[in-house]
Write a protein that binds this DNA or RNA. Structure first.
Lengths: 168, 168
DNA sequence: GGCGGCGGGTTCCCTGAGGGAACTTAACAC
DNA sequence: GTGTTAAGTTCCCTCAGGGAACCCGCCGCC
């Protein structure tokens, strides 16, 4: 299959997707970020093949998203924890969860609530502008080439194409 | 392969991942949301196999994320556009892009900038609490079972496990 | 001190999804 | 009637994922 390598494309979405665009990675990160860090727990909880789980974990450790730590010496036991790089995937999970809540929830509502400890309320994650705090949508934003947007052969920028929408 | 079906798991992340947890889907949505909607344009832009592109588009249309519209009659030409359900995937893309910018960008910076038309500035997407506007992180939130969190066999809730972190 | 169990993987085989490229159909355009 | 563009479809091949069995170090215990 030789999955098309996306990491070298000049698009942060592609680069992130190269790691994250796998059905299991998001769920592994969900579990690890919520405290499930042991191999067997992950395997049982996710229903993932142990082989694939081992491969995913190795990849995530290699990428610096997880770290493997020995939490007891005798007998030697290890678990996986999120690094800072891994913890910052949390907003991606929240965005996915929010979308799933809105569009995939059954009649009885969302399967889980997010409780914001700081303000003490159940909350809904909103993707907002860092400056003005307004929610960002397709319609009130546009993408422009950035400093790293070298447009060589085979590279792509998250296109500044919004203005030139396809013909009506 | 019979990819493990995740849509029936009681977790919105799993449900969203069932659709979105594929390397191509995120990139297709990126393109469609930025105005690339024609089959050939997508195929060239992404470098995706045409067979897989056709399958992905069919799936996305079936799921109600994209719609296929005829934009000219003679000769008949069609393109794909995001539905409301599809447009709401934008925050997920922004979160992915932000993460990629922070952790995968080269020395020359992010490949693209997000410009917020409403406030007129280049912005950084922040995942914030809908109530107080504070950024949400792993540390200031916890997950609790929601109304749809029926914990039958084979179902899972994004666990309320944060408090009971694995042993140190 | 041998036996069972647990945690954390690794190995095996099998299926089927993805890659690549060629082929197809339909509607013009010259 | 030859060429071009758009939008798929078909073919073959390889390799990643699923499933289940196997393995190894280190216990606890009787």
């Amino acid at each position: 299959m030789t999955r098309t390598p996306l990491a070298d494309v000049a698009c942060s979405i592609a680069r992130a997707t190269d790691l994250f665009g796998d059905a299991w990675t998001a769920l592994i990160m969900r579990d690890v970020l919520t405290g499930v860090g042991r191999f067997d727990d992950l395997a049982h909880d996710l229903g993932i093949s142990r082989k694939v789980l081992a491969a995913r974990l190795a990849r995530l450790v290699e990428e610096g998203v997880l770290s493997k730590e020995r939490y007891q010496e005798r007998p030697p036991r290890e678990h996986y924890r999120a690094t800072e790089k891994g913890e910052e995937l949390y907003p991606v999970l929240l965005a996915l969860m929010r979308w799933g809540d809105r569009w995939c929830a059954g009649t009885d509502g969302a399967p889980a609530r997010v409780h914001h400890l700081t303000c003490g309320r159940d909350t809904t994650p909103v993707t907002a502008c860092a400056h003005c705090g307004d929610p960002l949508t397709v319609h009130n934003t546009t993408q422009l080439p950035g400093p790293g947007g070298h447009t060589g052969p085979g590279t792509r920028v998250l296109g500044p194409l919004l203005a030139s929408r396809a013909p009506e």
